[in-house]
Design a protein around this nucleic acid. Structure first.
Length: 506
RNA sequence: GGCCGAGUGGCAGAAUGGUUUAUGCAGAGGAUUGCAAAUCCUUUUAUGUCGGUUCGAUUCCGGUCUCGGCCUCCA
């Protein structure tokens, strides 16, 4: 590969970029905080999932195995509250929201993590861990609550660089807590509860992630990631719990993404200024949304804007057009199937070979669909396939280098744009796109009630195109324009080039 | 109050210690076209502010201003 292939990430704990040295090169372990499923995630939540999906894909392209855990928080105050408001069982609510989350993830081409544990499946682990924390002197019991004693961990405030101030906190000390930063490990609950040594109750939020990551990955795992707002208190507390349990750091590197803002204010469920995917996909291709989310560096704020989405749409349309020209992709092809396999089946070995499978399938999809082109475009494609490396720049390497430098996705996108413009090796471009999780198969087609390529009769299109050509040759422009309108209606665009007529979906 | 981050052209938004300041949209001119679309070519406008380091800073450092985030659930 390239000379500059050293990977480094910004470690929020050290507040600086650090060389990435895995604990075990043969199995990279990542834990990401997943969604709390009381409400469909909005585009801001998805920024996190998309960014760390790229991390997963990228490391999978570099190391033989990556174990990626992203949990589902399916028990928490807000879930119970929301279920009450809607007057449905809390398990029905979580089932519904989870389903939406998964289908949105498929749209955005977010891979299933290797493991996707649910908090409620790990209650026993949590109780065991809480007992251990009490035993180790890191927690105390009061009024059927178990509280973590933050003063027992002397590095507690290191993490957030005094983000949690010693004085001036806005929460009042309660009778339960001895110290202001102390937090709940277990609390009584009457609605949804589990039996425990401290009575019927349920776990606090922070212990959920600790117990699941400890059980599945073990400490220390390599990278713990999530949104910036989780640094305090969530990750600060996880780190403290990990120390209290094992006397070691739970994670080596911590990565946090910045937010999606609206009018320069944070998008959040509580501020009710959110956009969810269902809303956005009415007007934009999910892949354009994915590009939009990756067009900014993950540690910078991303301001949501129509113009930004439009730009991303343009980029995607341009890539698609340049790469596929007039080649229609239908849902029967191999790439589509493989994509769905990867997304739907979380426990196959396929993920460990994700990078290879993506590259192979993207490549074979191109080869297979080459015949779909009408006259004149073939020579062009051959050119693209053969013009590798003319100026010594390997697209795959430059994308890899960009991502090696603290996951610089905007630079990677720029490199791909350049490579497409120059006409670099097409298969390498597609591999690069696959690392960013950008695919050129529209998964929405199957639900699209308007016409689309996958449901269209290719013979019909070709015959209409031919009829129009005859009309044009006879200078019957009224008729030729009619046919063009007809094709536009079913979603086919035409281009009259000197090499003949080209058509594509769009 | 403590801590963190951001400030780039008409707009969006990257990159970088130094001859050509990405990219997209918008604007202007041109090529091509039956028309359209697309494409191509040419072209205008920028690094909040004040200092410092340097041969040279938009890039590094410090001050300052403005905006945002966390300190309460939050990706």
């Amino acid at each position: 590969m390239s000379l500059n292939n050293q990977i480094s990430f910004f470690n929020s704990l050290a507040l600086k970029k650090e060389k990435f040295i895995p604990n075990d090169e043969n199995n990279i372990k990542i834990y990401a905080c997943g969604p709390t499923i009381y409400k469909s995630p909005h585009i801001g939540n998805f920024r996190s999932f998309v960014v760390f999906d790229v991390l997963f894909r990228f490391l999978s392209s570099k190391y033989p195995k990556v174990t990626y855990v992203r949990n589902i928080t399916d028990i928490d105050d807000k879930i119970i509250h929301e279920a009450k408001v809607r007057n449905i069982a809390y398990s029905d609510l979580t089932a519904e929201v989870y389903e939406n989350f998964k289908s949105d993830s498929v749209k955005l081409n977010i891979l299933n993590p290797t493991y996707e544990p649910r908090a409620t499946d790990y209650i026993k682990n949590m109780i065991r861990d809480i007992e251990k924390l009490v035993e180790n002197g890191f927690a105390y019991v009061k009024d059927n609550h178990v509280i973590f004693d933050t003063t027992k961990y002397d590095k507690y405030r290191d993490f957030c660089k005094n983000m949690c101030s010693e004085s001036g906190s806005r929460i009042a000390l309660t009778d339960l807590k001895k110290h202001e930063n102390d937090f709940v490990l277990w609390k009584p609950s009457s609605d949804v509860f589990w039996d425990s040594p401290w009575g019927n109750g349920r776990p606090g939020w922070h212990i959920e992630c600790t117990s699941m990551s400890k059980e599945i990955l073990g400490f220390p795992f390599d990278i713990h990631c999530g949104g910036q707002d989780l640094i305090f208190p969530h990750h600060t507390n996880e780190r403290a719990q990990g120390w209290g349990l094992c006397n070691k750091e739970c994670a080596t590197y911590w990565m946090h993404n910045h937010f999606v803002n609206i009018d320069n204010n944070k998008m959040s469920k509580s501020a009710n200024n959110q956009f969810d995917l269902a809303f956005l996909t009415k007007n934009y291709d999910p892949m354009a949304i994915r590009i939009f989310l990756l067009m900014s560096h993950y540690r910078h704020p991303l301001n949501w804007s129509e113009s930004g989405l439009k730009e991303a749409s343009n980029i995607y349309a341009k890539w698609k057009k340049n790469l596929f020209d007039v080649i229609p992709l239908d849902k029967e092809n191999a790439l589509y199937k493989r994509d769905l396999d990867n997304v739907n089946d979380s426990n196959t070995d396929a993920q460990n070979k994700l990078y290879d499978s993506f590259s192979d399938n993207e490549a074979s999809a191109i080869d297979a669909s080459g015949q779909g082109s009408s006259d004149g475009s073939k020579g062009n494609d051959d050119n693209k396939l053969n013009s590798d490396n003319e100026d010594g720049i390997e697209i795959l390497d430059s994308v890899s280098d960009a991502l090696s430098d603290d996951l610089n996705t905007p630079l990677a996108i720029k490199k791909i744009s350049e490579a497409i413009k120059i006409g670099h090796n097409m298969q390498n471009i597609l591999k690069s796109c696959a690392i960013l999780g950008i695919t050129f198969v529209n998964k929405e087609n199957s639900n699209d009630q308007n016409g689309n390529v996958s449901s269209l009769d290719l013979d019909l299109i070709n015959s209409l195109v031919q009829k129009r050509e005859i009309a044009r040759k006879n200078k019957d422009y009224n008729k030729s324009d009619e046919i063009r309108d007809e094709l536009t209606k079913i979603g086919i665009k035409l281009e009259d080039t000197k090499d003949g007529v080209k058509w594509y979906e769009g």
